[in-house]
Structures are given as structure tokens and as C-alpha cells.
């Protein structure tokens, strides 16, 4: 396999989506995205936050080259290695946890790397098991490990902690930060949860309801390590004041 990354892949990604329209079951056209402009800085965590149903998943699918029926330019080369964490774990049930990770892992990713990563996300004991034996929280950890094992040029996370109880979700958020900081990667995370967004983001991008576009792009400068519950409350209060439409519902 090709170990050398294509030139220019790790530079910033410039996403320009002029128009994306869904065709409804009854044939009507539903505009999902309009005039979406966003630059993604290298090795930073960009969090897209918007109301449910505003087209966040559609956006990620376009960026991952899973959907090419839109007008505009993704700005992500097709050769870019993508690590994608879906809303559901989407593991292969007939492969063990270890095989699921190895299947997509980067060629430079050694078995020692796998053991290290598995320990970091707390699934070391689960490697020989099949996904059906895992709880949702554990399966989510495996999906996270799988995405990191690809050594992605761009890591995409589509509400990766949704439908977990708050304690589990919070543990997983901290864990994501730990493994992400160990090896910073250009990442886009999509969520409708404001506290999750504030905890994780280097830059917080607020989205409008459908057809979605960028309302504001807010850098969050407090280092992630210092964002305890208190700091998050303070940032939240500040943002609520500046963007009441985006934060009052959450």
C-alpha cells in the first residue's frame, strides 16, 4: 500500500458548498445547505453545532465523499484518508473487535499501536470479542479506535456520543480529547449538544436551521484541559448572551 501521503493533504481544507438539495419522497425539493463556507485549520478540532435536522449529517457525508450530488467544492481531496465515526458504531458483526480495527488501519499502524490505542480507549479486554457482545458505550469506543487507527488526514465525528447516558458520554468525551491530544489530527465534530461543543472545540461553528449555513465561527481559547464544569458554564453564559438563538434551546 501507499505509505507516502499525497502532497497538500494535511493543509487546511476549504469547504465551499453552494447548494445541496434533497429530493423528498413525494418529489418535492428540500434545500438542505446553501452558501456554506468554512475553512478547517490543520490539527484543530472544529465543532459544528446546529439544531437537529439542520443538515449536519448531510454536510459530513459530502465532506467524506459519500454524497457527490451537490453544487460546490468540498475542498477535501478524494485521496485524503478519512476517519469517520458514525452516529451508530457500524462495526462488522462477523469480525472481532481487533479485526474490525485492523481492517481499516493504516499500514504503519503496528499491533503494538493497536494494543496501546485499545488500552487508551479502555477496550483492551474486548479485542477478541465480537461486536454483539459489547454494550453501546463499548461499541462506540471501538468505532472511535477504528477511526484513529486509520491515521486520518481528516477525522469526522457525527454526534459520536448521542444516546449514551450523560456519565458515559462525558467519560468518552474526555477520552476522545486524550487520544486526540496525543496525536493531534484535523477533526470536524458535529453535535447539537452545547456543553459537548464547548468542551471539545478549538473553534465552534454555529449553524443556521435548514437550509444551513455558517452563522458564526467562535474560537474557544481556554485549553481543553482547563475546561472543567465551571469553565464550561462561564463560556456557555457568554455564548448565550452573544447568540441567544443558538444557545437558548440547549
Amino acid at each position: 500500500m501507499n505509505d507516502v501521503r499525497p502532497a497538500g493533504v494535511t493543509k487546511r481544507f476549504e469547504i465551499r458548498i453552494e447548494e445541496k438539495t434533497h429530493i423528498g419522497a413525494d418529489g418535492t425539493l428540500v434545500p438542505a445547505i446553501r452558501d456554506f463556507v468554512l475553512d478547517i485549520e490543520p490539527d484543530s478540532m472544529t465543532v459544528l453545532m446546529g439544531p437537529s435536522g439542520c443538515g449536519k449529517t448531510t454536510l459530513l457525508r459530502i465532506v467524506a465523499h459519500l454524497d457527490d450530488r451537490f453544487i460546490g467544492d468540498v475542498g477535501v481531496p478524494e485521496t485524503a484518508r478519512i476517519g469517520l465515526v458514525f452516529q451508530e458504531p457500524r462495526l462488522l458483526p462477523w469480525r472481532t473487535v481487533r479485526q474490525n480495527i485492523e481492517l481499516v488501519a493504516d499500514p504503519s499502524f503496528t499491533p503494538q499501536d493497536l494494543d496501546h490505542l485499545a488500552a487508551a480507549v479502555g477496550i483492551a479486554d474486548m479485542l477478541p470479542r465480537y461486536p454483539q457482545e459489547l454494550s453501546l458505550g463499548l461499541a462506540r469506543r471501538v468505532a472511535l479506535a477504528r477511526a484513529f487507527a486509520t491515521r486520518p488526514d481528516l477525522l469526522l465525528l457525527d454526534e459520536p456520543f448521542v444516546s449514551l447516558d450523560e456519565r458515559t458520554a462525558d467519560r468518552l468525551r474526555r477520552l476522545l480529547l486524550e487520544i486526540w491530544q496525543e496525536r493531534p489530527t484535523t477533526a470536524i465534530l458535529v453535535t447539537h449538544n452545547p456543553r459537548e461543543a464547548i468542551l471539545l472545540a478549538d473553534r465552534l461553528v454555529l449553524l443556521a436551521p435548514r437550509p444551513t449555513h455558517v452563522v458564526a465561527s467562535v474560537p474557544i481559547t481556554t485549553p481543553q484541559a482547563d475546561r472543567d464544569a465551571h469553565a464550561i458554564d462561564a463560556i456557555f453564559a457568554d455564548l448565550l448572551q452573544r447568540f441567544p438563538a443558538n444557545f437558548s434551546a440547549g
Binding site: R61, A64, H65, L66, R81, R90, L103, V104
Partner: peptide
């Protein structure tokens, strides 16, 4: 969903057939 996963992770066609498609058809 699994098809999308295979495409997002750029699985080569033969690998996708062996790991994703055929086991579902078993």
C-alpha cells in the same frame, strides 16, 4: 450503513466483497 462505512474507509472492492458483502449474504 455498512456499505457507507466501507466507502468512507476506502476499502478496495475485493476486500469490501469479502469482509462486508459476502458475510451479509451468508
Amino acid at each position: 450503513g455498512l456499505d457507507e462505512m466501507a466507502r468512507a474507509y476506502r476499502l478496495p472492492p475485493l476486500v469490501k466483497l469479502r469482509e462486508v458483502t459476502l458475510p451479509q449474504l451468508q
